[in-house]
Design a protein around this nucleic acid. Sequence first.
DNA 1: CCTAACCTTGAAGCTAACTTCAAGGTCAAG
DNA 2: CTTGACCTTGAAGTTAGCTTCAAGGTTAGG
Lengths: 169, 169
Amino acid sequence: MKIGELAQQSGLTPSRIRFYEQIGLLKAVGRRPNGYRTYPPQAVMILGLIITAQRAGFTLDEIRTLLPSDLTHWDHAALMDALTRKIADIEALQVRLTQSRAHLLRLIEDIQARPDDMDCAANAHRVLTNMLAENPEALDVTSGDIRLLDTKDRRQSLSPSRRKKTAPR
Amino acid sequence: MKIGELAQQSGLTPSRIRFYEQIGLLKAVGRRPNGYRTYPPQAVMILGLIITAQRAGFTLDEIRTLLPSDLTHWDHAALMDALTRKIADIEALQVRLTQSRAHLLRLIEDIQARPDDMDCAANAHRVLTNMLAENPEALDVTSGDIRLLDTKDRRQSLSPSRRKKTAPR
DNA sequence: CCTAACCTTGAAGCTAACTTCAAGGTCAAG
DNA sequence: CTTGACCTTGAAGTTAGCTTCAAGGTTAGG
């Protein structure tokens, strides 16, 4: 099977498949005499596995270290460990999300709870003060990490609490 | 207040503060005769607001469009709308996470449920097949987006379902 | 034999949110 | 008057996961 066909069957683009090969996720691809890549039917499964793992929140790096060259010989221990840790990561993220959601809901309520005798400016200040008071500022949560945030096509990131001493060296 | 002091009080680095100014998040910073930036005490609050919003899942872009130049004059409607939509985004992500978590748990169980008479290789194949069957492949979830994933210092992303016709043009 | 659809490569571009670097000005203390 | 901490700028680097581009080889059909 040539790369175009594999692309169709797996739902990926040829460029993406080549990229995966480039970073060592797909190794030992066969070549025809003319230089064209050629894949065994099994490749569809490997790609399916990769995108499933991605959706579950694994980075390509993690996937690479877990993927055995031979699909029938997994490192059972490492795999279980990774799965378990990923679940923990997800749970940590869920906690964070629940907090964020609650925080936003409280904020909305607070905004709407403007005392009748208070003008918008004063209310804005009140809300802001409340909000910042709620946020211990520079709290450095330091928990696990996870990447899991697309749904459709997004790229994102987030990274507060990375601080460098502005202090004396 | 000079930038170093503001950095200390807000917990951000000077470079990050300059960066925020550069992208138009912090406007009209004062300058001393020597060229040094100078900030009003209020700036600490503005930065606190920005990092709080970031933690809640807003991008700097979103924050910029919502942040009024005058902290007492918010676009109430736009703000409420953004908050509400962000909550919806969070909820969508929570759903996704719950599914991912369940998926991983099922996977773990499935791996451990190896029939006594089956060897590892065959079991691997069985699990793989089950997993891929569960995944309708190329499902293109297409929901809202959100960025909310740091806790400590990470960058991440995820983006399946971006597909280009490999087909005839 | 031509053409369109395929394949090849390496390098560069994209996004978000910053940091780091290079090269240089300013200022208070000793 | 020198040192070191601080400030300035613009440009380039970082990360992840790809895509896009340029420049060219291959192949099947008509």
